[in-house]
Design a protein around this nucleic acid. Structure first.
Lengths: 203, 203
DNA sequence: GTCTATAGAGGGATAGAC
DNA sequence: GTCTATCCCTCTATAGAC
C-alpha cells in the first residue's frame, strides 16, 4: 500500500500503446480498427499514438511483424531441426503449437486474413519452397512414405492443429461450447494428432 | 453478331449490385469495403446502392446469409442423411466440399472472419450441439470408434478439407505455388482425405 | 512528453433534377 | 430508375500550447 521508492516506473507510454495495438488489431483487424480505439484501450491521448508510431500503418506493420513470427516462427525451427526424429518433431510441434494457440486463439485468423488483405506487405519474400523441399522434415517424410507428396502431409498436420482455432467463433457461437470446453478439446488433441499423423504416414 | 430481337435484358441493376457486393465483400471484408467500390465494380452509380439496398449493412447482411449457407449448408445435409454409410458420407462430403471450395476459395476466410467480427448477426441461434449429438453421423462414428469424442473427428475432417483454403494466401505468397498447382493439390486431397479419415477412425 | 483543438480527407447516405 | 451534387459525420494526422 505504501508507495515504494524508486520502484520501476509504470509501463512506458510506448509499450502501453503497443500492447493496446496488439489487442485491438487482433480483435478487429486493420480496417476495423480506429486509432481512437487503441488510444482508449491504452488509456492515453490520441495524439500520442502518432507521436510514438508515425501512423496507423506503421504501428500495424510492427504488430504484424510480431504476429507473423509468432504464428510461423515457433514451429518451423522444430520441424527443420535435423536432430529430431520425425515422430519427435510431430509430437513436440503439436504440443508447442497447441499450447501457443490456446494462449493466442485469435492469432491464426488475424494473420491469414491480413496476409490476404496485404499480400505484398507480409508475404516475406523468403523463398520457402526450396527450403521446405530440402528440409529434414520433408526428407524424413519421404523416407517413411514415398507415395504421397510431403507437402500434403504438412498441410494436413497444420490443418489438424490450426483449423479448430479458426473455426472457434463458430464453434462457440453455434455449437455453444464454452471457452473451457474448447480448451479441453484442444488439450486432448495434443495426444490425438501425433497418433493420427503416424497412422496417416504409415497407411 | 447481329443484335437479337427481344433478347432478355441485361442483368437487372439490382442483381449487378448484388454480384459486385459478393465480389468486393469477399475480397476486402466488411470493414475494408467502401460502397463506392461496389458501385464501381457493378458499373453503376453510387446512389443506386442505397436505392436498392437501404444501407451498406443491409447489403452485407444479405451477402453473408448466402455465404454462410454456402459454407455450411452444402455439406451438413450429406453428413446428417441416415441413408448413407459413414464411409460414403465422408467420400461424398469431401468431394463435394473441395469442389465447392475450389470454385470459392475465399469463402471460408470471409465467413469465419466476419462471424468473429459480428458474432450476434450470423451466429444463427440454431442449437447445433443437440442436433449434432443425435445425428446419424455422430452415431456412426461412435459405432466405429468409441474411444474418441466424435466431435474431434468432425473438427479433424473439416480441418483437413478447409484449412488449405484458409492458408492459401500464405501458400501462394510465401511458398510461391501457382493457382493451378494449388488446385491440383486440392484435387489430390479428394482421394487422400477419405482414406486418411478411415485409418484415423480405425486406429 | 502530453494535452487540446482542428485541419483535411474519406466515406455513407440522401435530396432533387431528369 | 438513374444521375449529380452535396450533406455530414468519422477518422487520421498534425499544429501548437503547456
Amino acid at each position: 500500500m505504501t508507495p515504494k521508492r524508486k520502484e520501476k516506473p509504470d509501463k512506458s507510454t510506448e509499450e502501453k500503446i503497443m500492447e493496446a495495438a496488439r489487442k485491438v488489431f487482433s480483435n478487429k483487424g486493420y480496417a476495423g480498427t480506429r486509432t481512437r480505439d487503441i488510444a482508449e484501450e491504452a488509456g492515453i491521448n490520441l495524439a500520442l499514438v502518432n507521436y510514438y508510431y508515425r501512423s496507423k500503418d506503421k504501428l500495424f506493420y510492427e504488430v504484424m511483424q510480431e504476429k507473423v513470427y509468432q504464428l510461423f516462427g515457433s514451429v518451423a525451427p522444430i520441424l527443420i531441426n535435423p536432430a529430431f526424429s520425425l515422430e519427435t518433431k510431430i509430437e513436440i510441434a503439436t504440443e508447442t503449437y497447441i499450447d501457443m494457440l490456446v494462449d493466442n486463439p485469435d492469432l491464426p485468423l488475424l494473420v491469414f486474413n491480413e496476409i490476404k488483405n496485404h499480400p505484398n506487405d507480409f508475404g516475406a519474400k523468403m523463398q520457402l519452397k526450396p527450403m521446405l523441399l530440402q528440409s529434414s522434415f520433408f526428407t524424413q517424410i519421404r523416407e517413411r512414405n514415398n507415395k504421397v507428396d510431403p507437402f500434403q502431409f504438412l498441410l494436413s498436420i497444420l490443418g489438424l492443429i490450426v483449423f479448430p482455432f479458426i473455426a472457434r467463433p463458430v464453434i462457440s457461437g453455434v455449437a455453444d461450447i464454452s471457452k473451457n470446453e474448447f480448451t479441453e478439446l484442444m488439450k486432448e488433441r495434443k495426444k490425438l494428432i501425433p497418433y493420427w499423423v503416424k497412422v496417416m504416414l504409415d497407411s
